[in-house]
Design a protein around this nucleic acid. Structure first.
Lengths: 100, 100
DNA sequence: TTGTCATTTCGGAAAATCTCGTTATGATCG
DNA sequence: CGATCATAACGAGATTTTCCGAAATGACAA
């Protein structure tokens, strides 16, 4: 995905916040039983609640961050967990420092 | 200016291009007589022509980049020259790498 | 001063984005 | 299977952004 398209995804307060919350999920979300939020991630409804927006909106935002390559996802049972893609995020930060 | 607001300014193809063109102004613009584009910068009309947009639009975009702190400006005679603020740009790239 | 040129500001139409409610899909449980 | 729950996809109204043309500002030159 091109730099400009990633920038467009990031240039939104709620989406940027999601990415930042996920740096320390334990600080910002209450965990599901037996789920390590750092290893597995956080599910859509948890993000929706924290955003104070509908589940529909949270799902869209997470999908946008996913398509931008900044998150990864894993489905476990009925839940879909999202977490940061640290490698891709670091790569993007480097690209910014170079291209900007 | 907050990170999110700078991101919004950058998340636009024409504005991002302006910033990138200004990395090598001699490669992208034809100079005014006796004006060192690296030292002094590039004027609004030059950018408008390169963008293939009106001078009004170019002026607005340059102003947005200026307010974001990414450019500096200097008026000489009837021309207003804009150039990159390398220190601020580097600072922003660092902030991104940290906050992202 | 008057005229001209570069730039900025203002107002608005078209396009894009935001965010929602609703519906559809997929998975689990009884 | 049928019911339920989490998520994704769809469609739409409200808001924001984009980009323009016209009018205002500021600087120089005659």
């Amino acid at each position: 995905m091109a730099t400009i398209d990633v920038l467009k995804v990031l240039a939104s307060e709620p989406r940027l916040r999601i990415l930042q919350w996920l740096k320390e999920p334990n600080r910002h979300f209450s965990p599901h039983d037996g789920v390590d939020m750092i290893e597995i991630g956080v599910c859509v409804s948890q993000v929706a609640q924290k955003l104070d927006m509908t589940q529909s909106t949270a799902s869209q935002y997470l999908t946008m961050l996913l398509r931008a390559g900044l998150l990864t996802t894993e489905r476990i049972g009925k839940y879909t967990y999202y977490k940061r893609n640290e490698v891709a995020i670091a790569r993007f930060a480097e690209a910014m420092a170079k291209e900007l």
